[in-house]
Design a protein around this nucleic acid. Structure first.
Lengths: 232, 232
DNA sequence: AACACTCAAAAGTATGACGATTAGGTTTCG
DNA sequence: CGAAACCTAATCGTCATACTTTTGAGTGTT
């Protein structure tokens, strides 16, 4: 999944540095300096910079250097950019954006899933709803998180829309992030778990409206909790 | 916006070739072959391949070559991937996916816009609604398209959510695509134009429910028209 | 002050050499 | 005969260097 090799390591250094604001908009890097500071060759620097350029985070210009572009230009849907931002300073803003995106997408995905899911999807969803209930009662946060991520991933996949399906990692990152940073109740709320069961039932019953409504309640609740908990 | 230089040209060759299915999943390319076939150096080939790798469209492996990855792995949110797919064989699938995404996102964006838009946004939106009406009456498809794109871009931006805002180019690509391929009525429907005015009014009045409802009618209508018109 | 000219700085490209990894065949041993 | 260890060649990965192209900025001329 990661970019491999030395360019990958350079990227893992530069990306977070830019995303965190340590290298703010307008900062000018020079390729030769990067070579020396990281002890790598021209080739490696160029490949890493090319990738950052394709994410629209930097713009190399002759006679000038490699300039950091304004945040507004970045490819905010790129998985790497999302991860870097979640790890850095504007984690709050990123979480809020992703929260709104979830509110828009996941209810629609649930409705589609109720229409399009095949038998395997439905079985898997039911099983995960059970697992969620069990791990919530046991207050096993780690297992709960894993099943929660899997649950939302199945709904997104079952929607039959490839773009929705690809948001699974993003949603997973959000759920992981908020658990890691203690942004959620110490033990899963029974009400939330019940809503997940509701989604599973509605999808199995082929009831789009009910699935959509239950999922909306889930993600709206998550967003409100986020807004209430986030610092700034 | 485009990737510059020779790697950009190579990318403009390889990307569409993969996206269109001319180089199907599992195809193995060799760097040296690409050098010769395109008359460029290793440097150039490597940079282009690195970018494709970051889009998860290819995977270079030692002793094997550069293999084309299955479609399911691609970064379907990458603007370049979207453009390549829209230009190629699975244009239909791409348009459908994007249609569903619009149905999910744009109503939510309209609701947020009704809450968050500043005075400039509201003014701009009203002006664009007027322009839409005028150019629709004149059956000036080209101008209508431009204003339509601008209209949706303003709504997305005014939502205050950076991720929504970034979908503006994507939505623009969809609108352009369907006009180019005669997938819409020969002249804009009065009903659709009226709905745009309704969105503008609701946003200006700060009425989220009304804005959301009108926008949903627009995008659902567009999706249904798409489904009715698309070949397969 | 406006314009043209020059120069040097930085990225862009090409090339040859070498290193590292690994698929697939070959040998060896049980 | 089969399996495990071993070797080999193919291919990507990295480095170092030289050269080319673009372009911002300074210089000087009108």
């Amino acid at each position: 999944m990661e970019i491999q090799g030395l360019p990958g390591r350079l990227l893992a250094d530069l990306g977070p540095a830019i995303a965190s604001g340590a290298l703010p908009e307008g900062t000018v890097l020079r390729a030769e300096e990067l070579e020396q500071r990281h002890g790598v060759s021209r080739t490696v620097v160029r490949e890493a910079v090319r990738i950052l350029e394709s994410m629209r985070m930097v713009e190399p210009r002759r006679r000038v250097g490699i300039t950091v572009r304004p945040k507004g230009d970045w490819d905010v849907f790129d998985p790497l950019v999302i991860r870097w931002r979640l790890a850095g300073a504007d984690r709050s803003a990123q979480l809020r954006s992703l929260g709104s995106l979830r509110v828009a997408v996941e209810p629609a995905a649930a409705a589609l899933a109720a229409r399009c899911a095949d038998d395997d999807d439905r079985r898997e969803l039911s099983a995960l709803a059970v697992e969620l209930t069990v791990t919530a009662r046991a207050a096993d946060l780690e297992a709960f998180l894993a099943h929660d991520i899997a649950f939302h991933a199945v709904v997104l996949r079952a929607s039959g829309n490839e773009m929705f399906a690809h948001l699974k990692d993003t949603v997973g990152a959000v759920l992981t992030g908020r658990t890691e940073h203690r942004l959620m109740p110490h033990r899963p709320r029974e009400y939330a778990v019940q809503l997940h069961r509701e989604v599973a039932e509605a999808v199995c019953a082929g009831d789009p409206e009910r699935a959509e409504r239950a999922m909306r309640t889930i993600v709206v609740g998550a967003l409100e909790e986020l807004d209430a908990t986030l610092p700034d």
